[in-house]
Design a protein around this nucleic acid. Sequence first.
DNA 1: CTCTCCCT
Length: 835
Amino acid sequence: MSFSAGLPIADVVSEVREALASHPLVLLQAPPGAGKSTALPLELLNEPWLAGQKVLVLQPRRVAARAVAARLAAGLGEDVGGTVGYRVRFEARVSAATRLEVVTEGILTRRLQRDPELAGVGLVVLDEFHERSLNADLALALLREVQGALREDLRVLVMSATLDESLPARLGVPFIRSEGRAYPVDVRYLTADPVGRVEDVVAGAVRRALEEHEGDILAFLPGVREIRGALGRLADVNAVVLPLYGDLPVREQGRALLPDPSGRRKVVLATNIAETSLTIQGVRVVVDGGLSRSQVFDPGSGLSRLVTGRVTQDAATQRAGRAGRLGPGVAYRLWSPRTQALLPAARPPEMLEADLAPLTLELAQWGTPDPTTLLWLDAPPAPRVGAARELLTGLNALDDSGRVTPEGARLLEFPTHPRLAHLLSTGANGALAADVAALLEERDPFPVGTGTDLSERVSALRSWRRGEQGRGDVAVLERIERLSKQWRRTRNVPVDNAEPDHLEVGALVALAYPERVALARESTSGLARSGTGRFLLASGQGAALPEGDALAGSRALAVAHLDAGSAGWGQAGGRIFLAAPLDPAVLSTRASWVDAVRWDTRSGTLVAQQERRVGALVLDIRPLRDLPGEQRVEALAAGIRSEGLHLLKFTPEAEQLRARVDSLRHWRPEDSWPDLTDAGLLATLEDWLGPSLTTVRTRDDLARINLLPALQGWLTWPQPQHLDQLAPTHLTVPSGSRVRLEYRPDGQNPILAVKLQELFGLADTPTVNGGRTPVLLHLLSPAGRPVQVTQDLRSFWNSSYFEVRRDLRGRYPKHPWPDDPWTHEPTRFTKKRLT
DNA sequence: CTCTCCCT
């Protein structure tokens, strides 16, 4: 009997069977509609190599896991929970008879951690692998290690809906390709990229599509704001226009997904939730605005922010495909073919962009403190693993060598991010910890703009549990309670519905986000001490409450959610979305005294004090006695580097010394002269300037330092002697004058500016650098005005001299202008003085 | 001018 009869996948079933018989890992590429998720697993249940063991099918989403299990069970003519079952968080439908188990990603990870041999499982199918979710990549890496070390007979089938040409080679495995089955979709582009807001452009395209085509329309916009805008612009069309996004209450989502009850045409304005997660019935036309919003994680601050960018090519393909499920469809792409060619093929794998703290803890528990040793498709980036380790070490989950501690193992018993697990594991009040962690994990039950105080949410959750009419989205509160209940069970504490102590809430938040405890900032005028709504976080970041927020009067906060701030926000830093007031005593318990020696730019002084600190927050100050010289030098050098070398005042002599040495560096690279350029001096401040800094405290002190001896001291024997020989400060000319040389950058010839009468009789241009470098002569009039620039004195006397003489003799009659400059006595005086 | 989307 064949479960795939009539499906495209039927053509490759025997090929897949044979490949799996002889290879532990096989890659199948099949587009949507081929039957790879809903029929193929049934075809593999009785393979001899499976030896009666189970098949696990991995799905990235719970809704998909349930749906796939239902389809597979129906293929056998059974109900779910018989031969085919599923297991997702909070829900399992499996029995002793179950041989094919559909699971979500987190479930598989937990199962592998509990039983690395996967006893009784013969095949694991990783579906939708093209999405390259962090957990799917992790599952593959762990499964490959299990195959290598414990279970040579375990098979893995990787299934991908889009063709990534590089994937087979990177996996090094047999590759099978199947046709899909979908109706053709006519993809249409604009001739040029549109200008203006995406909601206007999309609304215009929807109007046209309503006139030109039959059937329901699905339009993609980046977010809720744009969806609202487009809704307003389409208020008058002859169709039902409905929004669809993740935050929408389930009942309203249902209206968008099902056909309109009164049979009217439907227009759905959706975020990328409609790309893969939810399927809308009856769609014949897709309008793709071409934008998509996604989260960018900044490992430096541990914060993330939402960024709106262009859709990728594979996402646009997914979106367009939504028009071809019922019959032939149309997809309007609101950009030009030229832009299409420039779109990135796909988003980078989540592994390369996400917060790696959960992954790093999982791997430590797995026994792999160094994640790079596993077989990855894309290895977790080392700097992110480093940041994750730092966080986990701070939570006592890892030891110094990166191995999991008993506390780390305990954190993994709470299925959530290690930060929240730490809150749940160590929070003194277990019932409150469960409520707070659940609120922090789920989306906000309060609407936008209703204050940031987390305690208010705890109150709302508890009054809802008491059965009272209260605030908050009930569907969200239900999800929050489901999480809280699971964690209360793990901690073995009863539910608590009393009014929460707000400061206790803050203390719990501080456990999860230790770097986000914050102190109120003084306003710039220095008058208001609190109430400005602006805070400094222990991480050093600034953050602000929304205008008029009730928490603005707090002296200290524990901030749970904030964004990383954007350029337009200036000094205020990030925006606080969720926080709780914090008892300053909690800060005190975490504080420690540290020596603070630093340059303060505003006052222009060296600050040397002891500070009682929590990260960037200073709770107390006392003077520091006996400042170690090394710290002083370090702090002053850092100050000069941040403000610039202009804090130091170089005399003309010091500048000349720098120019002389610089010239020699160019002329004689083999001699290793020190680098006295601005960049070179800044790089070596501690070495050459350090000895001059022992009593420096202020900007004026810095300006008073005599730099010439400092620079001279930086030269090593016999450089001072060589410097005087090779790059002298002055040259003596035939008149007897000692004339100062002007050394120039980049090894140019130095300038000797001298009155031409002082050189009478001299044929050869003077030189420096041991005779190798002729000076550039600036010949001057008796008044010191330049009349000629030359490096060839001989030819000057023979020709140009006579033109100069003709021009100047009248103006300077008292000075000698001999017919024969070769024989006249060189002089800096007038004729009268000569006779 | 906050709020793409998942998972234990």
